[in-house]
Each structure stands twice: as structure tokens, then as C-alpha cells.
């Protein structure tokens, strides 16, 4: 039995409430935030209570919370989509909401039941995505070879941990190095925790130690996720991915990226990169870490050009 991390499926609907795992509290607490409407959904996305695949789940499930407006349902759903699309810039929210609005519009135009269409579309889509993610986990596990020492960055929403548990079960000896992933430290909080849970061997390193690991021959493979893909194969992922990709190429180490292909934008340069408030980076536990006169700069993502990617393990998310 392979290990399924709570991060693999971090949001679910129960009795008209969407429960979203607060990833900022993991690993000390597994707490789910109740979300009752699109306003709450936008808040958990903006405040980064959830991220990566969690955002995808929140977006789709939010439509299930907004099916009983006073006025026209299709217009209301279009407004819901608009609010979600403007929550954060880099993740392709419009491509995800477009799937639901497309189905709803088609049903409305044909005189069909918009409400039921949305429910069926969301549920069918989620079931399909789950199956395809499990399939991708198998592919990731297959890419892990006995003796591998794998560097990873940020967190890939449960897939790496599940693949690691499969690899361990297959008798492969695989080690991991996880970057801390400042400033939110998803590597330190999430990745090492779930790899541990999956009974995998993992060592935490600072983001500045990546070249040391590669130069010393301590890693022979890099596996990272991606938040967005461009039509030419460029990807956007957590800040730090670009320099890891450059180093991997420099040291002859294969870079494997988990992708969700999309033709929404032509190339990486066309993807909007979120620049978050520098104070998020400078302040920790209410204290300014570097002093009051120092500024902070916090780009949330960077772009990895397709030329630097050795292998993409893709999942068709219908984008």
C-alpha cells in the first residue's frame, strides 16, 4: 500500500462546505479551513493557505458552493470565475475556471440544467484528475532508480512522497535532498515531513547549498513540479527553480519536471510572475528579521526554459 499524504488531495467538499488544508500549519497541525463561498476561497488562495494543486481543487470545488444565487446562475458563475481568476497572477486560474464556464454556457445555450451540468463537470473532472495523478505517481516511481540521490525543490503536492513510497516498496534505495524553499519554507515544512511519512530518506538543505550538492556529486537527479506550462514547454515554478535548472545543466544532472501542459500562453516570458509584498519576506513571527531600514523583494515564481528540462512527466489536466 503506497502512502497518500494529506497534501495529495488537500481540499474536499462535505455538506456544502469546502474544507481546505492550511498548508502553512503543516507539519505541526493538520487543520482544515472551512470555506463557504468564493470570497473565502479567494482568501485562502491569496493568503497562501493552499497552493499548487490545492489551488486547482479550491477553484473547481468553489463552483459547487455557488450554485444557488438569487439571480441568473450563469452570470453568477461567470462572476465567481472572475473573482477566482484575479486571486493570484501566475497559476492559470482562467484556464481552470474556463472549463466550468464553458460547460455551463453550453448547457444554458441548449436549455439544459446548468446546476447539474456544473456538478457533473466538477465531479467528473476531479475523478479524472485523481486517476491521472495516480498514474503519474507510477511514472515518477519508475523514473527513480535504485541508488538515486534526488534533489527536489518546494513541494509537489504529495506526488513525490507517494512515488517515493512506491520506490521503497519496490526495494529501491533512493535518497532525497529537499531545499528549504524560502521564504515560506515549503521544503522544510512540507516536503521533508511527507517524505519521512513515506519512509524515505531525506536531508534538508538551505537553498544556497544546491551547487555544493551538485559539485560534490551528492545528487544525480532533480525532480520538481510546476505551477504553469507554456505551449513551447517552458514552465513557471516556485522561485529558485531557474537557478536549480541552470546548475543541473552545468553539472550534467537530469532535470525532471512534473507538468500540466497548456496552450494558454506561447512561452514562459508571457506568464505573469507574482511579486509579493516584500514585508512577507522580511517579517517572521511579527519581528523584522533584518531591521527596519532594509527592503525586501519577493518574486514568487520564476521561469525554467524548456531547453533546460531533460524530461517532462505530463498530466493532461484539460487546460
Amino acid at each position: 500500500m503506497s502512502f497518500e499524504s494529506p497534501l495529495f488531495w488537500p481540499a474536499y467538499v462535505k455538506e456544502d462546505v469546502l474544507y481546505v488544508l492550511d498548508e502553512t500549519l503543516v507539519p505541526s497541525k493538520l487543520k482544515y479551513i472551512p470555506v463557504k463561498n468564493v470570497k473565502g476561497a479567494v482568501a485562502v488562495i491569496r493568503e497562501m493557505k493552499t497552493r499548487a494543486f490545492g489551488q486547482f481543487l479550491v477553484v473547481l470545488n468553489t463552483f459547487l458552493l455557488e450554485l444557488n444565487p438569487k439571480g441568473d446562475l450563469l452570470k453568477h458563475l461567470q462572476d465567481v470565475a472572475h473573482q477566482l481568476n484575479n486571486s493570484r497572477p501566475t497559476f492559470p486560474f482562467a484556464e481552470v475556471t474556463g472549463i466550468i464556464i464553458g460547460s455551463a454556457s453550453k448547457a444554458a445555450a441548449g436549455g439544459g440544467d446548468v446546476r447539474m451540468t456544473v456538478i457533473k463537470t466538477v465531479q467528473g473532472f476531479l475523478a479524472g484528475i485523481r486517476a491521472r495523478r495516480l498514474q503519474r505517481v507510477q511514472e515518477i516511481a519508475d523514473a527513480m532508480k535504485d541508488g538515486d540521490s534526488i534533489l527536489t525543490h518546494c513541494n509537489v503536492s504529495g506526488e513525490l512522497a507517494m512515488a517515493a513510497s512506491l520506490a521503497v516498496a519496490q526495494g529501491k534505495h533512493v535518497k532525497f535532498y529537499a531545499t528549504e524553499t524560502r521564504p515560506y519554507m515549503q521544503g522544510a515544512k512540507l516536503t521533508v515531513w511527507e517524505l519521512h511519512q513515506a519512509k524515505a530518506s531525506v536531508t534538508l538543505v538551505a537553498d544556497n547549498a544546491v551547487a555544493s550538492l551538485m559539485a560534490e556529486g551528492l545528487v544525480n537527479k532533480v525532480i520538481i513540479g510546476s505551477d504553469r506550462s507554456a505551449a513551447n514547454g517552458d514552465i513557471a515554478n516556485k522561485i529558485g527553480s531557474y537557478q536549480i535548472a541552470i546548475l543541473a545543466r552545468e553539472f550534467g544532472i537530469p532535470l525532471i519536471v512534473l507538468t500540466q501542459p497548456s496552450k494558454g500562453v506561447a512561452r514562459g516570458a508571457d506568464m505573469p510572475i507574482e511579486i509579493r509584498d516584500g514585508s512577507e519576506f522580511l517579517v517572521f513571527n511579527g519581528k523584522n528579521v533584518f531591521g527596519p531600514k532594509v527592503r525586501g523583494f519577493y518574486p514568487g515564481f520564476d521561469v525554467v526554459p524548456y531547453e533546460l528540462i531533460t524530461k517532462a512527466i505530463a498530466i493532461n489536466a484539460g487546460l
Partner: peptide, 29 residues
Amino acid sequence: AGRVTSAILLKQGITPTVISDNMAGFLFF
């Protein structure tokens, strides 16, 4: 590194903008 260098720069009238160690690639890009 962030604290010491920032303090020295401030003394010389230069405003330091601190980044995390994984953001350098973005700046070069």
C-alpha cells in the same frame, strides 16, 4: 550575511534589498 552586509551598506548610504538565496536566478534572468 544578510544582516552584516545590510548594516555596512546602510552606513554608506546604500539601501539594501535583501533576497532569499533562491531568488538570485530571477534577478539574473
